[in-house]
Write a protein that binds this DNA or RNA. Sequence first.
DNA 1: TAGACATATTGACATATATCTATGTGATGT
DNA 2: ACATCACATAGATATATGTCAATATGTCTA
Lengths: 107, 107
Amino acid sequence: MCYSAGMENLATTFKALGDPVRLAILEFLKDPVQDCCSRSDGVCACDLEAFLGVSQPTVSHHMKILVQAGLIRAEKRGRWVYYSLNAEAFATVCRELEPFHEQPATV
Amino acid sequence: MCYSAGMENLATTFKALGDPVRLAILEFLKDPVQDCCSRSDGVCACDLEAFLGVSQPTVSHHMKILVQAGLIRAEKRGRWVYYSLNAEAFATVCRELEPFHEQPATV
DNA sequence: TAGACATATTGACATATATCTATGTGATGT
DNA sequence: ACATCACATAGATATATGTCAATATGTCTA
């Protein structure tokens, strides 16, 4: 086999990014529409449900995938879970992509 | 629905990136191991087959997905098809990700 | 023209994924 | 305590995806 564990990891991250519903979730987390119970430092899942137009378990499913990929953070406060972007993870993805659009090194 | 056509597009690109075999292909295109018929300005599919350890139709399938996502270019010369990275596509992906790891704008 | 070669397409199959309904779990408030 | 609320999990189902063997297509060469 010619691909490493790091590659599997990166693929998992891209897989998490490869769904329009999850991209919409990330956009929402970036520019939250404060609705029922979201706060300045986080967005609750119930707001996402209304925004996305999918069922609550579906939201839960997508949030789990995004958390596992490390793209967002989840923090439980009382009965709510507040989600926020993990900026560092996005920066890492960009760094991984850099070699593919930099000027080729002169050997 | 709260997500746009542009989002579908971006999701397609990430989906193309979300497979370890395809990431291995991209790595190979970045740093080709010149083997049977690859050239300085492109890599042929047969070299990939040997490198990846998957069947020829599987290589063909993955190349098609990468081409459709715009991540690589295919150029047919005689009976070979030479593939190369499309650096601009990777740069675009990075630009799309930038808002997710920049400092939040002060409103 | 015939055969060999590189790649694409087709069809089959197993697995993964996205979605829902129903139900479980844990916290809050009356 | 009990009902309610927010979220998670389980199970079911439809669709998508990755893979291969078999075959088709197009190109070169003898």
